[in-house]
Design a protein around this nucleic acid. Structure first.
Lengths: 194, 194, 194, 194
DNA sequence: TACTAAACGAGACGGTACGTCTTGTCTTGAC
DNA sequence: GTCAAGACAAGACGTACCGTCTCGTTTAGTA
């Protein structure tokens, strides 16, 4: 029998939280990650600063929360083949990272994750969704005989995601569909051939 | 006939530049990337702020310069086999990224690179050194017949580096020598099998 | 046929009003006039802020009300002589103002009175009590022939009260009984000799 | 040989201090004592907030300093008689206190003086100027035989100043020249008659 | 030996954002 | 309709940092 933990006093306005997150994302798009200001967020959301700080410890937390709140989960693909499904998943990932804003957001989060454990958890949660989808696809591949039964799924996923991230964000080259093809093909070959 | 571009006036104190870079790296280790303050750097280096800004346009540039100045080039390995050489290169990389500070630095640079082109160039330069070494190793592998002649070396390098970075920084798992083994083996198998 | 003006709803808790006034005076003594906070008063009185604002328009009004509520009227002296009675009245006044808190309160009220007419009225009410007592004493002096019939009583009272206030609060010197003596003697001489 | 204790670093801009004080007084006149804002002062003075806080500990100190800086010393009167001189001095004082702003300022200072010793000192300094002038006048009166040699000058001054302050600020009545006449006459009579 | 020009340590400057605090109002469910 | 609790909009507070600017001093090369 779940007891609703009703606290006394006026309850927090959920609309305010939503307005704050929306205003944050808008500002992020307009002036960039570093240009976001708590005062500006408050003004645009029509909210006092205290209302923001009552919910988030700092500007960073707010921004990160806004990001995760505005990230919708990726769909599970079904193209009929393991390679096709993976191309779908990581092609979408590459496309997303081709936008400077998405790239900037991901990288800022990764940077902050090295310092802030909560950010790390948030990042892990964001990533794990893709991971699970990929795992499902790869397991299907094992079931279909396209991959050996003892394939190290986590390793394959890190190779796929890593190649896209590394090429896009660190090497600084775009990842077009053709490149995704080659990445997927090479990784699947590596999984099979070992 | 090289004309020494000797300007009039007191020459810049090279010791100051060194002290500034050292102080910057020390502070970076102590308080992290975002916690570094120009005033603190100046004080620790026993230097006026103007002396810093005379040499670097901004705090970011200073920090990046300090990083690149304190990064020594990796040696070219020669273990007798392609797999062994790659294990050497990327084992070293994994080891470096296992330290939170190195991880934090790399990620902060990547984050900034999405905004600042010069940072992107610096990052590319830091990365390209490992890339060249890896290319040399892989070409040797082609020559020895361990790899097909038409192997896409850049792709293989992105797979190797990406797997290490992704697992360490994004997935948040450590990469031990055994994992490096598996990464290298899978990538080489993928290169051979396609 | 008195109709009891019983309003609907829960009646106001008179204990709350008293608790608020008490808490206000306590805080005033602890952190001074400017340091008093509505939230602190509410917390100490165990009362919601709305309960305060339902009774007083603003923090200032509350504080002033608390002051006037805690000020008991001075007794009318009767020592047998005009000078003795005046020494009694203004000796008491000097004693009160020798306490920093009383001084602070009076001065804060005076300062606020220049801005807020209601404060001015309250202050006037507080002062007028002493004024009336003094007038009675001085009139008795006229009746006894100790003072000329055309003495300007208001002027004499302002001289007496002013000397005490000025010396205590502005000049910053204490006013001991001996000084009160001299003040009273000089003013009475002035009244007689003119 | 006085050695100027020149500190290293850029010296403080005296013009800035002056601009800050001027802006403070202007704002005080426009929006009143409580309405003065540090940001507004900074903006009007064309100055950063840090420049203000480098010189004054708090808003209160700034305001008080601005007041004392904008208070010019009163001239020494010479009308030929003690009574005339005193009428001059305290008529001027009454005139000043007839302005609500001056009254408010003085009272605010007095209120703060009960808490802050530095304000007390400042207030004492402001008051002592008039005191010295009054003393000179009264001593001249003794020399001329208009006052007894053993007159308590400090007491007389407190009576004079006190009457003006009390009537103006506490009783809340204006003090016109005629009233000043009566105050002076009564005090002088008191001094003579005792 | 002077003079000139630039770099130096120190620190003040204008500006801007931060996170905290307070005020007076509003909104819950309980009484 | 009041109560305690506490969220709300507004906005001032005092701090921190950035990148620039002045000081008076120091260090070189030039006259």
């Amino acid at each position: 029998m779940e007891v609703p933990p009703r606290r006394p006093g006026r309850p927090r306005d959920e609309g305010a939280a939503q307005a704050i997150l929306t205003a944050t994302m808008e500002l992020m798009a307009e002036v960039g990650f570093a240009g976001v200001t708590v005062d500006a967020v408050a003004q645009r959301a029509g909210v006092g600063k205290a209302t923001i700080y009552r919910r988030w410890q700092s500007k960073e937390r707010l921004v990160l929360d806004a990001i995760s709140a505005s990230t919708e989960p990726a769909p599970v693909p079904d193209t009929g083949s393991v390679a096709g499904d993976l191309r779908e998943i990581y092609g979408r990932m590459a496309e997303s990272l081709s936008q400077p804003e998405s790239r900037s957001l991901l990288m800022a989060m990764v940077a902050q994750a090295t310092v802030d454990d909560l950010v790390r958890d948030l990042l892990a949660a964001l990533v794990s969704q893709r991971k699970e989808v990929s795992q499902a696809v790869l397991r299907r591949g094992i079931a279909e005989g396209a991959l050996p039964a003892d394939a190290d799924l986590d390793l394959l996923i890190d190779l796929l995601g890593g190649a896209v991230v590394y090429r896009t964000c660190i090497a600084g080259h775009p990842v077009d569909p053709k490149t995704v093809d080659r990445i997927v093909a090479t990784v699947l070959a590596g999984a099979a051939g070992r």
